[in-house]
Design a protein around this nucleic acid. Structure first.
Lengths: 252, 252
DNA sequence: CCTAACTCCGTATGCCTTACGGAAAAACGA
DNA sequence: TCGTTTTTCCGTAAGGCATACGGAGTTAGG
């Protein structure tokens, strides 16, 4: 990655504040950077990040493949721009009510976002591009914690905690949905294929706890799992723990 | 995916219990399925799942590309086999001590595993192949909770909770390490490239909380983040919440 | 000794990103 | 008005990927 591309991409990320530095000569661009980014998001929404390709973005825009490279430096930079755009899509609601409710709101916002744009969970690189909406996001998350009595360091750690848990949980949820949709095979059908083979292969009685708990959970969920319910259960435990941290502080 | 491949892959997964159903005619295989799987794991460890290719596995084994397909049905099935192999690599230690310590042990085991084999976090499909080591894993996780006073459903949800949180947290950690290693650019250098551009671009005073907390956290970590410390902090909050669930139950 | 079964692998197809350079369009300067 | 310069659009080609198919050679059973 050239330093030049870094500059270029940061300029594109902050283009609304900077104004587009477009030279006046030459043919006009047929589409805009925003349209390229939106097209990219649509492709990624529909097919996921591994199947996301520059050609599909070009097709959707009515351009030929190589023209896309005159708008963005390359595939990974485009994905960086798509991320910041997706983060800014739904405005952050102002925080209301007690701490617990505010943090639950943050988590739910992220959870919904991951379900709207599952490909956000398929991005690997840390060192994300620092864009305006990403900055807004961090500020908004911290605002939910401000004034509650945490140290600055704890505020950062709590933002990380809620983000990590929500991402992990959403990943399970989104993967379940995608597998069901893409394969066209329901949880039930899948078990019908696997069960007879596993019966043949598993030593009987080898998994007493797994058998007992798996059966109960399966009946309760009426499926292999219930991701939204797991998310709420986990979030409740997690927020209990966060409140406890504060309560100990007040008492001492 | 053909039903035939499902059968074949499940037979490979449970090959130790089933015995290998190898026909006697024809040339002997030059390597074994185990060697193919181990080679696959090595490639994935070194280069990550996106760069994992059948050709690289073949090269490492001294085979030509297409020969690998006589051992395993295809790329995704091989990855399924690699997952179960990786899960079985380090034996699950018996659970000791009070609930909190046992759960922390489970989380740490997963955390270490993800750092040993980061590509485990890059796998998307839910509906994992059900292999012997995966079954052992679930049983072992439930055993950490057995007898503490949870319902069966709660046991399943707690396993999910610890797994999701640990995966989310490890993903951040592993991504940070990988980015630093692969790009050869340290956190500090990265900030030195970004800072001047961001100074130019960010409205001054637009991010009061982010500025304040980010600076404190940066100084404390002596980096952009400290993943292991974030993991321990999050796990402490989470286990506080889990213990609270049990305490409420005992009191009522 | 023949034949069926099996392994190994060459080839071909059809994806992907992206470097490079050419053609055409638009606006500026003289 | 007419180059000249800048910029866009895009064709081509190189080099990567998975995998379907079929052929060649090897081995054991009959």
């Amino acid at each position: 990655m050239e330093n030049q591309d870094v500059d270029r991409t940061l300029e594109l990320l902050w283009r609304r504040k900077l104004g587009v530095p477009q030279g006046s000569r030459g043919p006009k661009q047929r589409v805009s950077v925003d349209e390229v980014i939106r097209a990219g998001i649509t492709v990624a929404d529909e097919e996921g990040l591994p199947a996301f390709s520059m050609r599909k973005v070009a097709d959707r825009l009515g351009l030929k493949l190589m023209s896309v490279y005159t708008y963005v430096p390359g595939r990974s930079e485009l994905i960086g721009l798509m991320v910041d755009e997706a983060i800014g899509e739904v405005p952050h609601p102002p925080h209301e009510g007690p701490l617990r409710q505010r943090l639950a709101g943050v988590a739910r916002h992220l959870w919904d976002e991951y379900h709207r744009h599952p490909w956000l969970l398929q991005i690997e690189s840390s060192r994300p591009w620092i864009g305006p909406h990403g900055c807004d996001r961090y500020e908004w998350q911290l605002a939910a914690l401000e004034g509650a009595g945490f140290t600055d360091l704890e505020m950062d750690q709590l933002v990380t905690l809620i983000g990590d848990f929500t991402a992990g949980s959403a990943r399970t949820s989104v993967a379940a949905r995608a597998t069901a949709e893409r394969s066209g095979i329901s949880d039930l059908q899948w078990w019908e294929v696997n069960a007879p083979i596993l019966d043949r292969v598993m030593p009987p009685g080898a998994y007493p706890l797994g058998g007992r708990v798996g059966t109960v959970a399966g009946q309760e969920y009426n499926a292999v799992g219930d991701p939204d319910r797991s998310f709420r259960f986990g979030l409740d435990r997690l927020l209990d723990g966060v409140e406890l941290l504060l309560r100990e502080r007040v008492e001492s």
